[in-house]
């Protein structure tokens, strides 16, 4: 059978000459190959649910990332695209902490407390982490914060808190830094702090709050509390997007909540001790409903 090579393959691609076809037909090969092609024409294998498959992929990807190959941190920065300049600016402060640094984290639903140099008390809110060196460098205390924390500094001591959004510098004071998603809020409870974001530098006195949104200048308001709400077992937010509020709730209770993206903002408070109550506190003023499935999945919907 001195056919041209791969002649059967060319039956499928339809690249045969009339001569070749005639030859194959007379030998019966044409019919035999056609029978195979026909029998395999409608052949399929198990269907593939792409939506489900993608969800499973993302879950696996994020679990692997959180096991510490840095992907998660990279993702955070990617989401902050618009704040790229700020991230660059902070690179110097971050480098200071590169090698011999220690990291303390508060797991979801938990807080962590630590003391630095006997002069700085830090309380980390859930899901947040703080990176610092064992001893001061050049008499300066620089820490790197991801998330939210309350700082109490003995007067006369210097502290710089670097976040992905900007830095906060203090001289003996009590203050809270919140740096999640697009949101960067600094509350000063005592003394004085300086907040630097990009080119902008502002000083806050006691009972003042500075809030930065995605872009634009910060807004200064006054506060009545003497401690951040989350330290008293509740989270208080002011005009934060629903997604950020729900993310906070997820961190606080270490749960996953399904919700449609929303542009609405929420101002108010939710407790840390009772998930059902916290959901009510958020949903009822917003006209939203929520349900918990038998598998423990929570969904917030209109």
């Amino acid at each position: 059978m001195a056919y041209d090579e791969n002649i059967y393959a060319r039956i499928i691609s339809g690249e045969l000459s009339d001569d070749e076809i005639a030859q194959l037909k007379s030998s019966g090969e044409w019919q035999e190959i056609q029978a195979i092609l026909q029998a395999t024409e409608g052949m399929t294998i198990a269907a593939h649910d792409k939506e489900k498959g993608f969800d499973a992929l993302i879950k696996k990807r994020d679990v692997q990332a959180s096991k510490g190959n840095g992907t998660k941190i990279r993702r955070l920065y990617l989401q902050l695209g618009s704040a790229a300049a700020v991230v660059l600016l902070l690179a110097a402060a971050y480098l200071l902490l590169s090698d011999s640094s220690i990291r303390t984290s508060a797991a979801n639903g938990e807080m962590a407390e630590l003391n630095l140099d006997g002069t700085i008390d830090v309380t980390l809110n859930d899901g947040s982490s703080l990176q610092y060196t064992e001893t001061k460098e050049n008499g300066e205390r620089v820490v790197k914060l991801k998330g939210e924390a309350f700082f109490k500094v003995v007067p006369g001591n210097k502290l710089s808190v670097a976040t992905a959004h900007g830095t906060v510098q203090v001289l003996g004071t009590e203050f809270n830094v919140r740096s999640w998603g697009d949101n960067f809020t600094v509350d000063c409870f005592e003394g004085k702090v300086a907040v630097t974001k990009g080119q902008q530098r502002d000083e806050l006195k006691a009972k003042e709050r500075m809030t930065f949104r995605r872009s634009g200048k910060g807004k200064k308001t006054t506060i009545a509390d003497s401690r951040p709400g989350w330290m008293n077992g509740a989270t208080r937010v002011h005009q934060e997007s629903m997604s950020e509020v729900i993310e906070e709730l997820e961190r606080q209770y270490d749960v996953n909540i399904k919700h449609a993206p929303s542009l609405k903002t929420f101002s108010g408070e939710f407790v840390h001790s009772d998930l059902q109550k916290a959901l009510e506190q958020i949903c009822s003023p917003m006209g939203l409903k929520f349900k918990t499935s038998a598998e423990g999945e929570i969904e917030v919907y209109e």
């Binding site: 090579e5 791969n6 002649i7 059967y8 393959a9 060319r10 039956i11 499928i12 691609s13 090969e29 035999e32 190959i33 029978a35 195979i36």
Partner: peptide
């Protein structure tokens, strides 16, 4: 690819 396809069809043809 053609070679592998041809090979596959040649083997399967033996079924007849």
């Amino acid at each position: 690819v053609e070679k592998r396809m041809h090979g596959a069809l040649a083997s399967l043809r033996q079924l007849h």
